[in-house]
Design a protein around this nucleic acid. Sequence first.
DNA 1: TGCGCACCTGTCGGAACTGACAGGCCCGGG
DNA 2: CCCGGGCCTGTCAGTTCCGACAGGTGCGCA
Lengths: 258, 258
Amino acid sequence: MPPGFESSRYGHGLDLGRAEATVLFDVLQDCAACRSRHAFLALLPKLGALLSFDHALALAGRLDRGVATTTDCVVAGFPEGWLRDYAASELPGRDALVARGFAGRGPCQWSDAGAGLEEPNALALCRDHGLRCGHVAGHGPLLGSSCSLFCFTGTRGREDRRTAALLRFLTPHLHLAFQLALAVSEPPPGGDAGLTRREREVLGWLKEGKSSWAIGMLLGISERTANFHVANIMRKLGVANRAQAVAAAIARGVIDAG
Amino acid sequence: MPPGFESSRYGHGLDLGRAEATVLFDVLQDCAACRSRHAFLALLPKLGALLSFDHALALAGRLDRGVATTTDCVVAGFPEGWLRDYAASELPGRDALVARGFAGRGPCQWSDAGAGLEEPNALALCRDHGLRCGHVAGHGPLLGSSCSLFCFTGTRGREDRRTAALLRFLTPHLHLAFQLALAVSEPPPGGDAGLTRREREVLGWLKEGKSSWAIGMLLGISERTANFHVANIMRKLGVANRAQAVAAAIARGVIDAG
DNA sequence: TGCGCACCTGTCGGAACTGACAGGCCCGGG
DNA sequence: CCCGGGCCTGTCAGTTCCGACAGGTGCGCA
């Protein structure tokens, strides 16, 4: 009998009631179906039944040698004042909470964040704005190179091990949902750009660093024809050279990075 | 009160018992934490408690103008004979079940697959090998361009609407788990290849199709120095030219396709 | 039968890339 | 203090790319 069965409640270590289990299933379904910023935004309030918070914030970005760079964000109900003060502060780019989140070091809550959290961080600013409780959880890069950070805060809220366990469970799903939302919300302009099979084939060899002559050999056509295909590829993708063509083709999913 | 609460069982439309709900949570946690083919393989048997099957198969590939190409697969317990016969048949590359799955057209089971499913497909072959029940579910490209297909079959098994609903719920999570497993199981050789900040900066402009002269302008250095950085990038990545450098950098996650 | 399209081939010249030479400045660690 | 590394600059020769010219074949469709 699996360990979870010993408890009268559900989820390994999550200690969920029946209503919460149903909400969680709902949220997980939404996570996998998240295809826009709006869908992601709509997903956040549902978490309120599980985590109990007033405001939520999701950041996407990168962590490079300990320095966190934010590239995108979705805000759900954070106070205007807080946002303004945060932007005006020295925090953006140096917030230790963000760096910790992007590193995927596990959830962290206001009550335990004080100890062991480097300065500067947004904790004091949150308390100044009356956001007395909160959780931050993040995730490192997964399918792609982008990290995520999720912050749930407000005047009330539970800060216990159960909530931490729930966040630990949810964060990877939220990360994937967020990445999906951001990836799909900016759809590649023009899909596959109407590239022909031959042109995709040529792109595949361009990606491998082959010269026109080599591509001609590989495809059994003349070097000139390989050049002809490359020119058409560049024209259709609207790019200036082969390097950009490869990047654009990968970005649009015409070929994969492999 | 959300609709799910009206039922004495859990999950919107999934109609799960307590034990099944716990298994499902467990599986979902594993999905988000899946980092290797082995982890994905270990995840499949757990589904047995929910779907009841003997053999499982996961395919990754692409769908191009209705033609499915399989690039990778993970097999859990399929009979040797079946695999041999399938490989020897005309099916690989033309199996309508695979094409349907890669198109993400929703789960499909043996009992209803006969009607409306194009030929050729693997159904007859499965029945020949005594695999009398089964489900196929697939998913289109999500974070990346790769599609997934999951096949659960055996001599026994439920083929009802509840199982279909469960598969519909699970498939996106399985797809992401599978993509994660494949993406991470072949780690980029050498990580960031020891590229310096400047070199990553140059790569970012290469990706945009800038010439050496333009990169020099943009970075406030001479054209020659830009060339110097490009040469070092190509040497470190072990590639032949800029186009391949861009592809390799994206594949390794040094820069993103953006 | 004509039309569009994918695919193929050729030449030419200027621009860009690639690799190898040789050197300079600045900074941190042994 | 020297050494290594990141970063910067230069020259030179050979290769490759890129755009624009002008064509040919085969296939499906109206």
